[in-house]
Simulated scan of single mutants.
Amino acid sequence: MKNFNTNNWILAGLLVSITFASALYFWKTPDSWESMDGFAAGNSRIQATAVDIATKSGGRIEEITAAEGEWVKAGQLLVKMDAEEIEADQHVSEANLHRVREGKRYAQAIVIQRESELTLAKKDLLRIQELVEGGSASKQLLDQHQARLYSSEAGLQAARVRVSEAQAAIEAAIAQVGKIKVRLKDSLLVSPRDGRVLYRLAEPGEILGIGGKVLTIIDLSDVYMTVFLPTQQANQVSIGADARIILDAFPDIAVPAKVSFISPRSQFTPRAVETRTEREKLMFRIKVKIDPELLKRYAEHVKTGVPGMVYVQLDPNIPWPDDLPPLLSLDETLE
């Protein structure tokens, strides 16, 4: 009986020790302090701003210079659309511009001709007036030369109007040439920013409509994770608050981040919340962004979709737990 009681006490002591050790272990892991006052936590996946490379006008793809997973620079040529028809339109518009410019020169020459005719008409009228005063010419002849003067003046005015019309035609033709050049430029699709090609959605030879997507690029200078926090915690989060990201791929390193967005609207709840219990279920979207300089240093390791945990500091006066993995710095090397 004594031995039995002794064994029971030994077994009970072992169970207590195991329970205490287990509690101590879980208390020291990040999953335990996520519920501590001053901190909030949630699981999420790495996301990045995605940009679609799409056509501005419909056409056939002539060439794609980038493959999936390839790094591209801002301004780099990615896609070349077939521009044969546009180039033909350019030749037509340039020829039209040349024609209207020549038309202006012709109109200007007509103005010079009409000015000469008006000058001659004025001189003839003066001579006829002298002859009429001297009785050597009839009044009818004077009227004829007077009408000729008025006709010359009208002809000059009409010639000057044609010059103005020719100038307007030139400006319209120049605008048309510029429009064709814009279309030619739009046939060359370039990268709007540095990034990595995520998807190649079309291939050379395919015909796409207006806005047809060819490539999708992710901007790895804008990488973030999104978590949803309940109302009580969301009210304590501020823009710029410190955050830590622990990825499943690198569980021994904490990536420093900052809160960059707090949704002004709740989610996952009915539109009309009437009771206190329902109000407590409100969840707010929080966006935590990684430092762009850090992303630039480890760009080769950044991959969207990688799962992990996000920890947000609600109270800046409460220090981060000591058992948190060390922060990733610009000098470290990831393996």
Rank of each mutant, 00 (worst) to 15 (best):
E203C: 10
L327C: 04
I61A: 01
I64S: 01
A48D: 03
T333L: 14
P270D: 12
E70H: 07
L97F: 14
E335Q: 15
I245L: 02
Q146N: 13
G308C: 00
R148Q: 06
L328M: 03
Q90S: 11
Q313A: 06
D252A: 09
F284M: 05
Q140E: 15
T277H: 04
Q236Y: 12
K123T: 07
T29R: 10
L118C: 07
T19K: 03
H301K: 09
G209Y: 13
N3L: 04
L120E: 08
T226D: 15
I46R: 00
T269A: 07
Q236A: 13
S263N: 01
T119N: 05
G59Q: 01
I10S: 11
A50R: 10
G211C: 08
A257F: 01
A48V: 08
Q144A: 11
D291T: 02
R148E: 05
V237I: 07
V51Q: 04
D322H: 11
P30I: 06
S35T: 09
K287L: 08
I170Q: 05
S191A: 15
D143V: 10
L208V: 12
R297H: 06
I245Y: 00
S152C: 04
P192R: 10
F268D: 08
A147K: 14
A169M: 14
S221R: 14
T216I: 11
V310Q: 03
N5A: 10
A159T: 10
S57V: 12
G305F: 10
V100N: 05
G308Y: 00
H98C: 07
K139N: 12
E300F: 08
Q176S: 06
P251F: 13
T333V: 15
I246Y: 00
T29Q: 11
S260V: 00
I170N: 03
H91L: 13
F228L: 09
R193P: 04
S164Q: 04
W27E: 06
A154P: 00
A40D: 02
K303G: 03
T49D: 06
V197I: 15
L141Y: 13
T55Q: 02
D248Y: 03
Q90N: 11
A137T: 09
M283R: 15
G59K: 02
D52E: 12
E130P: 01
R45N: 05
M283T: 12
K289M: 02
L247V: 00
S22F: 09
L220K: 01
I61H: 00
D242K: 01
L314F: 15
K287Y: 07
L188F: 13
E206C: 13
A168T: 10
E274V: 14
F4C: 02
V306Q: 02
R114P: 08
P204T: 12
T304P: 04
I318M: 12
D222S: 09
E70D: 12
S151M: 08
A95P: 14
A41D: 01
M309I: 07
A234E: 03
A48K: 04
S32A: 11
W71M: 13
P270Y: 14
E84F: 06
E87L: 09
S263E: 02
V51R: 05
M283S: 10
K28M: 11
P192I: 13
H91D: 15
G58W: 12
G211A: 09
S191R: 05
A50I: 13
R196I: 07
S93T: 14
H145I: 03
E332N: 10
L184A: 09
